[in-house]
Amino acid sequence: MKVLVTGAYGQAGSAIVSQLKQQGFVVEAASHRMLDIADLSQIEAMLDRVQPAFIVNAAGVADLASSEQSPDRCRRVNQEGPAFLATAAQARGIGLLHLSCGWVFDGMQSSPYKEDDPIRPVGRLGESKWLGEEGVRRHCQRHIILRTHWLFSGHEQGEVARVLQMARTEPQIRALVDHIGQPTAVSDLARVVTAILQQLSCGVQEWGTYHYASAEYTSKYGFYEAILAQARQYIAIACDELIGAEAAQEPGAIPARPNQARLDCRKIRYVFGIGQRPWRQYLQGMLTEMCDPVI
């Protein structure tokens, strides 16, 4: 079965492309330069050429700061693009799996968010993601919207690499204690996307909105603490103190974000049989590859 992956060279997209190929899918990987999803004519031309059975939309602005600084780009990619993909997919009978995120919730709820909990987007990022979801629902009947949260990878410009770089050179690192979520490895997300597509390709018709994030809640402080503890096995660490901080006390303007974005992932387990895996096991494997052994 052929799958078109948009945003295919981003953090999530590249992991999804790799996993799909490993599982025998025929994959057309489209970067932003190859396909501007905010241009309907480009989408239609690519779909007519590639003729995929499914589209996985991994394209999107996911950074809080850039979404505030570049609102037009955020709107085009997160809001208009998904609606155009959905419109073109519906006209051709193509299924669409669209990645969204937990920023569609305000983070004020004490319990993990279910798929049908009230939507209260935070900032431009949350608003654009929600409107993108609505565009998919409105224009494509055969859709899966998969909300995830706090993706991490071994990418050299990603959060884990940034923490490792600071750990090598700085005696102290600050980390937020009041933002709670579920770190999710992109390889774990790719596993889930692949499992969903495998079932859809076998005739499962359970379209709709689902949540997936790795098991175990933590804060930025807890995540950084885990990175440092595991990295000490492989590299020399200069950092000897991890300082807990609250967002309101940090210098500079911090874009609005939910103070907790825990996702309830029971629906995806009941419908597709997909269980959560611990993020720590993915982090361990990732650091083994990223860190040079201590000589």
Rank of each mutant, 00 (worst) to 15 (best):
S41C: 00
I43T: 05
D106T: 03
D106P: 02
G60R: 04
P118L: 09
R269H: 14
G181K: 06
A231S: 15
S214G: 13
Q157I: 02
Q90K: 12
I55E: 03
D36V: 00
I144K: 00
F223S: 08
L4D: 08
Y282I: 03
Q199L: 05
Q284K: 12
N57E: 00
A213T: 13
A30P: 08
Y282N: 04
L146G: 05
A190F: 15
E134F: 02
K114Y: 01
A86R: 06
E44N: 11
T218L: 09
I243C: 09
P118F: 13
E159V: 15
R138S: 11
A38Y: 11
W103S: 14
G126C: 04
V136S: 05
I274F: 02
P251I: 04
K2G: 05
I295G: 11
Q182M: 05
A256P: 02
I295A: 13
R138I: 01
P255M: 08
F84E: 00
A231N: 11
V177M: 12
T148A: 04
R147K: 03
Q182C: 04
F223D: 09
I43F: 07
T194C: 13
A190Y: 15
G135M: 08
Y113P: 05
R191M: 10
A15P: 12
R147V: 01
K2T: 11
R73Q: 13
I227G: 03
R232N: 11
D116I: 00
Q165V: 00
C239Q: 09
V104M: 08
T148W: 01
S41I: 01
V193M: 07
I37L: 07
L131G: 01
D116C: 00
I37M: 03
G208T: 07
L176T: 01
A161R: 12
L151C: 08
E28N: 11
V177Q: 13
Q42K: 02
D48T: 13
S187K: 10
A58C: 15
P71Y: 10
G10N: 05
K2W: 10
P293G: 05
T184S: 11
A8Q: 06
R76L: 10
T194S: 08
G81N: 09
R75A: 08
E170P: 05
M290K: 06
A256N: 04
L283I: 13
C202G: 14
A83L: 07
I16E: 11
E241R: 15
M34K: 13
D48N: 15
L283V: 12
G102L: 01
A213M: 13
V104H: 07
A236N: 13
I274E: 00
W207C: 06
R73E: 14
L96P: 10
E80Y: 10
R174N: 11
A247T: 09
M108Y: 05
A226R: 14
R266A: 07
A167Y: 10
G203L: 06
G126R: 04
Y210A: 03
V104E: 08
F25Y: 11
Y224D: 01
L40A: 13
G24C: 10
L99Q: 14
H143C: 09
T194L: 02
G81M: 09
A215E: 15
G107A: 09
D63P: 00
